[in-house]
């Protein structure tokens, strides 16, 4: 996985600003920690090649 070009702190602040979301100071550290975990999972998904014809899963109709 390639390291992000900026820190998780900056990433979280930027995402919150883009959503006009005021993060209470008490939760900033926890949100950053959880974002870090999710970034690792997101990288696994991002790096897995899928054909263009693979549609998002919707309702379960096996």
């Amino acid at each position: 996985m390639t390291s992000p070009p900026f820190s998780d702190e900056v990433l979280v602040a930027a995402r919150a600003q883009a959503m006009e979301l005021a993060l209470p100071p008490a939760c900033v550290a926890g949100v950053i920690a959880n974002t870090r975990v999710l970034q690792n999972y997101a990288a696994l998904i991002r790096d897995f090649p899928l054909p263009d014809t693979c549609e998002p899963a919707g309702d379960y109709t096996p």
């Binding site: 979280v12 926890g30 949100v31 959880n34 999710l38 991002r46 899928l50 998002p56 899963a57």
Partner: peptide
């Protein structure tokens, strides 16, 4: 709260890709 906030800020592309992988 902290998990939900981090989740709410995930990019749409990450969510959609997860649902494509799910398929």
């Amino acid at each position: 709260r902290d998990r939900l906030l981090a989740g709410a800020m995930l990019p749409a592309s990450t969510y959609v890709q997860a649902q494509r992988f799910r398929r």
